[in-house]
Simulated assay, not measured.
Amino acid sequence: MDLSLRDVSVTAAGRKLVADVTLEARQGQFVGLLGPNGSGKSTTLRAAYQALKPSVGVVLVDGEPIDRMAPRKRARAIAAVAQETHAEFDFTVAEVVAMGRLPHHGLLDRMTAADHRLCAAALAQVGLSALADRGVLTLSGGERQRVLIARALAQQPRILVLDEPTNHLDVRHQLEVLDLARRSGPTVLAALHDLNLAAAVCDMVHVLDRGRLVASGTPDEVLTPALLAEVFGVRAHVVPHPASGRPQLLFDRLESQEDSDA
């Protein structure tokens, strides 16, 4: 499935958080949403999966406005892993992952053997099979993040929206989670904080700055020293990864005029 945002703006308390964002994640692509803190990445993603309603513009799934889709149809099409999810009740890991199957059944329907197999497979994919009976409130932040990704995979969405999915994860699990999202089949739109991870995994990237889209293209096209200086305020040296050839970034502090005068 394709996910498209067309001229999307989000306004809250009289302040425009995101302005006129147009971007597309095509079938099977891994698309990154980049930008400094406060640039509007999370707001854009929330508009994409309708946690926030755009004040202007439209979100389309395969050309159909998402706000006109029945809730269950929407939940079968798109799954989201938010940046911050607070668990209030100590469900087990298996119970949380099983919630991903709700869009495929009536509210009172029992889990089938096929549902249980899908949930077990999702837990195995994120490396947490041994924790199935643990309460989620006993988990570390990284483990809990992987549980939420397993729940999204169990949902079997055609589109997966991830907000900083590598938060709280060590380097190994960062790489594994992003590779899993890429290999699992859905179209992926992900806000990423680590620019080197974005360069390694993304087919396309879009850069937000102060709520506006300022650059779009492949990582090679977008992650240039000039853009990184302007948007992120750092000096970047771009070198090819020795194995993949993808751009990798080495950063220095960008010298200010005050530093030059000192």
Rank of each mutant, 00 (worst) to 15 (best):
A190S: 11
V136P: 04
E143W: 02
L175H: 15
A122W: 02
R182S: 01
L60R: 03
A229E: 09
L52N: 04
R210V: 08
L128Y: 07
A75M: 04
Y49S: 00
V205M: 06
E64R: 09
G217V: 11
A191W: 00
V238H: 10
L5I: 11
V18L: 13
D109Q: 15
D115M: 06
G57R: 07
P165M: 03
V222F: 02
D194Y: 02
R182I: 07
A190N: 09
H104C: 07
P242V: 14
S216Q: 08
F30V: 03
G211F: 06
A152C: 15
V93G: 03
A82V: 13
D109T: 15
H241P: 13
R144A: 01
S184V: 15
V8T: 13
R212F: 05
K73I: 01
Q125V: 00
E221A: 14
M99T: 07
E258F: 06
D203E: 14
A226S: 13
A198N: 07
M1V: 08
K41W: 05
L123V: 10
A226N: 10
F251A: 03
V177Y: 11
A75I: 05
G135D: 11
A215H: 02
D133Q: 15
L34A: 02
R26V: 03
A181H: 06
A94H: 14
V205Y: 05
L254M: 12
A79H: 08
H86S: 04
Q27L: 12
T112Q: 09
E64A: 07
V214N: 02
Q83N: 02
L249E: 02
D259T: 09
T224I: 05
R144Y: 04
L139D: 06
V10H: 11
A262Q: 05
Q29E: 10
H237E: 08
V126S: 10
G233D: 09
A215F: 01
A152T: 14
K53W: 08
T187K: 00
A154F: 08
H241T: 14
C202V: 13
D90M: 10
